[in-house]
Amino acid sequence: MARAGWWSTVAETLDARPVTGWAMTRTLLGARLRAQASFRGSFAVDLVSQFAASLVDFAELYVLLHNAPVIGGMNLTQAGVVFGLSTLAFGLADLVFGQLDRVDRLIRAGQLDTLLLRPTSLLLQLVTADVQLRRLGRAGFGLAAYLVALAWAGVTWTPANVALAVIAPVGGVLIFGALFLASGSLLFWVLDGGQAGNALTYGGRYVSSVPGAALAAPLRAFYTFVVPTILVAYVPAAVLLGLPLPALLWPPMAWLGVPVGVVLWGVVLLIWRASIRHYTGAGG
């Protein structure tokens, strides 16, 4: 680096601009990505295995539909749209928020205290501290399945349908992200609550990846109005494909992903903050 002459002060050669929140986030994320790059081999294996795991999930659906050609009013291609959309949304949410359901390890190791003693949000630190790029494998598989199934299923591409096809994954990411945060919050209260949290996140994912009409009505009601994962993929997919919806579901609900996701985030953030307060109250 070309430095100015002897009269210059250090302050002149160094960046003195204030650090924005965005710059901080970039720095944190960059650190995480560099740390992962230091284990190149295992990263590649992880990426491939995530992709393969999604393939197995899809094979399950395929076997099901091969034996019963129509399930919940959908054939294989149509169910593929649901599966692809669900897998894409879950994959992206898992990429960003997936590590929140492991906050119990940080609590046990006392590492959470270190994070709490930094002047930035705990959520931001947790999200950036453990982003797992290998989860791109799952999201990538979901995206491919979504696009291929949409192309095969013969969707009428009206402007409304195009908009819905784009906005539906966004709503799904919001909803699944909120579920991960809720699952993480639970761990502050019940340190061994990991399994209950998994029921919320991974259970929600499973329900969202199959045609919702195949579920019994009470189950469908639960996964619409309590844990709204049916809204992630099944409802938008049915509307895109012009298929009828079962009882308790109406076509306009296809657009509810984003608003419901936002409301859910509001509620879950309140719970998250209460959980941190609980932690400082109980002393870990």
């Binding site: 250090v10 302050a11 160094l14 960046d15 003195a16 601009r17 204030p18 650090v19 710059a23 901080m24 720095t27 944190l28 650190a31 930094r118 002047p119 930035t120 630190q125």
Partner: peptide, 11 residues
Amino acid sequence: ILAAIHRLPEA
């Protein structure tokens, strides 16, 4: 990274 968290400019 720590400096960024504390929002300290490099200078």
